[in-house]
Design a protein around this nucleic acid. Structure first.
Lengths: 232, 232
DNA sequence: GATATTCTCAATCTATAGATTTAGTACATG
DNA sequence: CATGTACTAAATCTATAGATTGAGAATATC
């Protein structure tokens, strides 16, 4: 049986033409890869993928106008098998987190070696996630921090705990976008009573209007429950 | 200056006594480690940490009654510097995800080599996250899946995309709880102009008031966009 | 150079939100 | 049974939100 492997079709996305050239040359040194195009904006990247369905997109995420993460998200919604390897100049935990969140399969820095880039491409194409150890640590710093803050916010002094059950009920309807009349109808009480409750809620949450009350509620775990699962 | 490095104090948590013995012997083969105790339940692990404040906890998460993840969470709330390396028999993406979520710094399988265990311990103690490539992939499978489901619901036609950049700016301030006056002051425009923008926002988002607009924004990914940074 | 969009603002009007005071009922607790 | 709290409600008032119309300036598009 003859060895006949279709070349991997790659799209490069970067708004800097020199970068595109450099990376392209680098990739073409490897057998098995074809750079079938390049794009310098998120929109053109999306259009290119729609037309030519590359196997892999190597992309910078710092693009003019719309950023690369949005492009990844849009393309992923198309339901294709496109893999994304982010090639970024930044190692912010926040950026890494958001890239992985929207569905990137790998993230490497422009300062990393070309061997690492090629290795990352291979891993990603094999269905794995490629995130160098340094970046993995940064990702988890951010990931775990977000949960620490969440549980810290729930602790401390949560003003929501001072609400009576009726007030909680009213606040719940506020967070659904109801006005006084809507709440009154749903709770079978008068509009003035609702106003009284809402005013008391404002006092307790130390806010001035319903929008702030709703924001306080959402930011402080109102309505959130811990889903406890049994472990194996 | 004399080389004098304090030994790393390790707590082992596993409900199987044979496992504890085996791991303990393994660790003690390494210089620099002291196994200062072992626990066979989540509660006794928590109590042990409170009393003896180990540097590292190597733990199985499959424990009777309360599971190891809860123990990690409880201990992390104490505000100590305790590092956790999960040593599990299972490689479920869900388990890995939850372990990392509650603050584990590493996760390795019992089937992995002792060299890998020791390496993981070192990495974790150095403040890094240790997650073997196979498990990293599993973690991200789960992680990304959870967002795919979320964005599938939010997607379809996102009305936020019809907003002009100025309207986005105004909506951003609305989601901070500002009233007309506050927005006008911050954008250096008149209050009536703000009202015009807000009205246009309502039209485009098909809502009736600011609370609904804010809720729509928050539920449809507003603000989850990249804060554009200058590229190198 | 005509057209469309965006951003700006005023003026005016109505509707709703929010503040405040007072008060009746119910219920629990000491 | 006196006291405190939660829930209900009315009345009244002010402040803010929101709808609508019209219009000038800037910029981009064709």
């Amino acid at each position: 049986m003859r060895e006949f492997k279709r070349k991997t079709r790659v799209l490069l996305v970067d708004d800097n033409n020199d970068h595109v050239k450099g990376i392209k040359e680098l990739i073409l040194l490897e057998t098995g890869y074809d750079v079938i195009g390049s794009a310098s904006s998120a929109n053109s990247a999306v259009n290119f993928v729609k037309k030519y369905n590359p196997d892999l997109v190597v992309m910078d995420i710092n693009l003019p106008e719309k950023d690369g993460l949005q492009a990844i998200q849009e393309i992923n919604r198309l339901g294709l098998e496109t893999k994304f390897l982010v090639l970024s100049g930044y190692d912010d935990p926040d950026l890494i987190y958001r890239a992985m969140k929207v569905g990137a399969k790998g993230y490497i820095l422009k300062t990393m070696s070309s061997a690492q880039l090629v290795h990352g491409m291979e891993e990603v194409l094999n269905g794995k996630v490629y995130l160098p150890a340094v970046l993995t640590s940064k990702f988890f710093d951010y990931f775990q921090q977000s949960f620490r803050e969440e549980s810290a916010a729930n602790d401390e002094e949560n003003l929501l705990s001072y609400l009576t059950s009726r007030e909680e009920e009213v606040l719940g309807l506020l967070t659904k976008g109801n006005n006084y009349k809507g709440i009154a109808n749903q709770l079978f009480i008068s509009e003035t009573t609702v106003k009284t409750h809402v005013n008391n809620i404002f006092q307790k949450l130390q806010v001035n209007d319903r929008t702030q009350a709703v924001l306080y509620a959402l930011n402080n775990g109102f309505g959130k429950k811990i889903k406890a699962k049994m472990s194996a």
